[in-house]
Write a protein that binds this DNA or RNA. Sequence first.
RNA 1: GGCUGGGUAGCUCAGCUGGUUAGAGCGCUGGUCUCAUAAGCCGGAGGUCGGGGGUUCGAGUCCCCCCCCCGCCA
Length: 650
Amino acid sequence: MNKNYITTPIYYVNGEAHIGHAYTTFIADTLARHSRLLGNETYFLTGTDEHGQKIEESAKKQNKPTQEFADEISATFKNLWDEFDISYDQFIRTTDTSHKIGVQAAFEKMVANGDIYKDFYEGNYCVSCETFFPESQLMDGGCCPDCGRVTTIIKEESYFFRLSKYEKPLMEYYEAHKDFILPKSRRNEVMSFVRSGLHDLSVTRTSFSWGISVPESLNDPKHVMYVWLDALMNYVTALGYGMDEVKMDFWPANVQLVGKDILRFHAIYWPAFLMSLGLPLPKHIGAHGWWTRDGEKMSKSKGNVVDPREVAKHYGAENFRYFMMREVPFGQDGDFSQRALIDRMNSDLSNDLGNLLNRIIGMSEKYSDFAIDSVNVAQYHQKELHDADTILATLEGYFDELQIHRYLEELWKIFTIGNKAIEEHAPWVKVKEGRLNEALATVALVANLLAKASIMLHSVMPKTTATIADALGFEITTASYKALITDKGLLAPFVIKKIPPLFPRVEEPLMQEAPKAMIEEEPKKEVALKTEDKKVSTVPSEGLITIDQFFQTALKIGTVLEAQEVPKSSKLLKLQVDLGEEVPRQIIAGIREYYSAESLIGTQVCVVANLKPAKLMGMLSEGMLLAAKDSEGLSLIRPEKPRFSGSSIG
RNA sequence: GGCUGGGUAGCUCAGCUGGUUAGAGCGCUGGUCUCAUAAGCCGGAGGUCGGGGGUUCGAGUCCCCCCCCCGCCA
């Protein structure tokens, strides 16, 4: 029996669970259930990450003891997973005592083998953002790239992990294990990052205390472990690392799921830590994509965040889960919309699957008083059985590469076989001709197809498939998996249960609240319709902005004081533009192909004055020129008559 | 700016080492059965395969140039 360990990341308790957390957890749960069905000894871990400065601060804001704050948020995650019937075997918290002991043990081992040393962490620190920034990210004059304020150089004592030492071993590992990082497209990113050179990693802080302190043996109590070392270790401390180690035989993990944003930590730091500890690396790190809503990024400020609870409440938790697993290739971003969800449910679940079940319930009721017997199936439906078993045999391979959407796509062909068989053999005709055995064989064929398919669908829709199995007189277990899938067997005679349609068609969106963007769109469409027919508005009704939104952009007239070519660039000019402010703005503009530096000096231009400063070719650009570009060339937008520098446009 | 990946039907995507009329699902549309959840089944329309050169008997598939999109890095 294989040991199979599957993990989600531990979720940071700085906010409530959202669709992204749900997605990761659904995938992991699907993998875990699938593994168990195959008969593997399976351990599924999820949990919460609770240390760090941000948690400390959030708790302070709410006037709560930090632990109490962490307890509360952690519980919201656990509750959500329980609501969704997530089959985790353990819910780890980084504040668990056993985790702390394990992390300290790991730290000691790293110290012992020379991978951790004490030095000074020196960096440009933005007091306002409370963040260190590497030299390369700073703006001109050492300003913070986020807020633009001047940063200060701070020197802080810190322990470092010798990440640089693992550059080569990591590259060798990636080379030798092509499917270590999934999807494969992400592998390139990781490798190019490592190839560009790894710096040693600062793994402790003295600036906050909400974390696991370094081992007592170091006698350095002011040092607290930095979040990633602490957090990543959860995957082995959950198995008892550094303690009793009772479950360490589950290591290495089979699949460790992560969002694409934290891939680097899991594909570089984590393997390096493991190498340092002398532990084998996980077989796969799977990085999934993000979800957008109606094509837009979700954010609290837009008010278009998808609440997994809400969707589940209106559409059903497993339908939602099916949608997420089926809709998006692993690794790609997906888009959630009620339309897409409804289409998927109606087409796949209602029409293909649900209706098929209903068809044989109806026929068996009329032809045999619900009795179904596989006895003649092989005789009349050799071809269908063969086709179905062939498809079923190929499915496993998709799971190996986390291609759950392809898995489901293939699985659905079983239902097409069933629907076609009914059509082709028209049991109602056979019955009229007195060939009852043949008619019943077709019904029994479809019952078997549904049974086999529901076994394979079980990991995605556990409860729904259990209901189907119940109607078909069997249970989905490792034993029935072996009998019906592996051994290609058929159902024993049974009496089918008449159940109401499993997936009623959804005709209209069931969730009332529309995202703000949609609400605002409605009236505009009406206006466009009311316009007289002869003058049909040519303004597109979508993507309109309000006057307030327009004025969020500060457009100003500027006078070019200086202009010079940027060395090594064929496109860029460096300009000093007077916007009526104390100091002229430096603007880097990509117009060298169309304007010479001399020709610009003294002329006026239109400038976006409140653009976030950006660095181009290492130079700060504090604004953008307006210009019109087409296939013929580019032309700057200028005031028709001279205006004072800094005049606003609008 | 550097490096990946990609640009194929209305939408989402498949097309391995170049080879008959470029595929699937959804959507649209015509027909048809009646066991079934206005479901099923059969058929159809719809693509100058991002643009331009080139190699070849033959290129979506190889080479060069250009444009655009996503991602990672800077």
